[in-house]
Every structure is written in structure tokens, then in C-alpha cells.
């Protein structure tokens, strides 16, 4: 799941409290499914264990709210890799494409490359599926065509977004500044 990476990306610009991070996450990534505080803190702990974030300051006080997290060099590298690597077009994995694109737009990384890379991978997979489809029968045929159709839907979104990138990017900058 891309929750961890998304949270990590939100720490990148400047150190942040868990409380702030949850709200930012909801705003950029979690429109329909707000993140629970518990999940925020457990994810941050995991990230800390991986060495991607570090505690920069602990304020005396009660509870975990007082912890300020900052990103490490490894963490930045992790984000680079995550954003830049096209996701394997597995059907039943929740897509990270949207998240990766948003992060790229927010962090100034190459959004076109995110789209283009994913497109390439999707198309290769579609070709494989076509070859499978020609020999498939019964439920296999249904599964193959199901995947093909969904990959096509992704590709359409990739094309649309590619065409809209400049505008969306400007709008997001506006929102960030606001």
C-alpha cells in the first residue's frame, strides 16, 4: 500500500508532527477515507524502524502528539525510487499510480516520467494479455479480458492526465501556497 510512502513524502519538505501529517494526508490522498491517528503513528514507527524518518525533537508532554519527525537521506532515496518505479500492473493490488503522480507534482519530481513509465509497462502487459487471450477459454478468457479492460481504463486516465499536467500542476501550487 502506498500509505507509508505518501506519509513519508509529506515529511520530506519539512519536519512535521503526526497530527499535521494526518490532516495533510487526508487533504491530498485520503479524500474519501481519512486516515486514523492510530494508523498514522504506527506507520511513522515503521518508517522510523526502516531508517527513513528520524525523530528530530521530542517535546516534553503527554502522548505521541509531541513527536516531531523529519526525513532522512535514505528516506528521500526511498521516495525517489518509489515515485520513479512504475508499478507492476497487477490487477488486484490497489493502484499507487494516483499517489505517485500526486507526490511527483507536489515535490517537483518528473510527473511526465511517472505517467510515461507506467504507460509503457501497462502496454507491455496488455500485449502479453492479448497473446494469452487468443488461446484462453472459459473463465480464463473472462479474467484476461477483465484485466485488459481495466488496464485500458488506466491508460486512458494516463493520457488525460498527461494532457492536463500543466494546468493541474499550477492549480496544486496555488493550493499549496494557500
Amino acid at each position: 500500500m502506498s500509505t507509508a510512502e505518501s506519509l513519508l513524502a509529506l515529511v520530506e519538505p519539512e519536519p512535521a508532527y503526526g497530527y499535521t501529517l494526518k490532516h495533510q494526508y487526508d487533504r491530498w490522498f485520503g479524500r474519501k477515507r481519512p486516515l486514523g491517528f492510530g494508523q498514522v503513528y504506527s506507520t511513522l514507527s515503521r518508517l522510523e524502524r526502516k531508517g527513513w524518518v528520524a525523530l528530530s525533537q521530542v517535546e516534553a508532554g503527554h502522548g505521541p502528539e509531541r513527536r516531531l519527525y523529519e526525513i532522512t537521506v535514505d528516506g528521500v532515496t526511498a521516495i525517489d525510487e518509489w515515485v520513479g518505479t512504475p508499478q507492476a500492473p497487477d490487477l488486484f493490488a490497489t493502484s499507487s499510480l494516483y499517489a505517485r503522480l500526486t507526490v511527483a507534482l507536489l515535490s517537483g519530481r518528473d510527473a511526465n516520467q511517472v505517467l510515461g513509465g507506467q504507460r509503457q509497462v501497462h502496454l507491455e502487459r496488455m500485449r502479453e494479455l492479448q497473446a494469452l487471450r487468443r488461446k484462453a477459454t472459459g473463465p480464463d478468457l473472462l479474467a484476461v479480458t477483465y484485466e485488459l479492460t481495466h488496464l485500458d481504463a488506466d491508460l486512458r486516465w494516463i493520457e488525460q492526465s498527461g494532457a492536463r499536467l500543466a494546468v493541474v500542476s499550477r492549480e496544486m501550487d496555488g493550493e499549496v501556497d494557500a
Binding site: M126, R127, L129, L148
Partner: peptide, 11 residues
Amino acid sequence: DNVVASHLDTL
């Protein structure tokens, strides 16, 4: 159309 293109070897 992407689906059409996926029938062919080169894009």
C-alpha cells in the same frame, strides 16, 4: 485506441 495498439508488436 490502446486496446487496438496492444494487438501489435511495435508501438
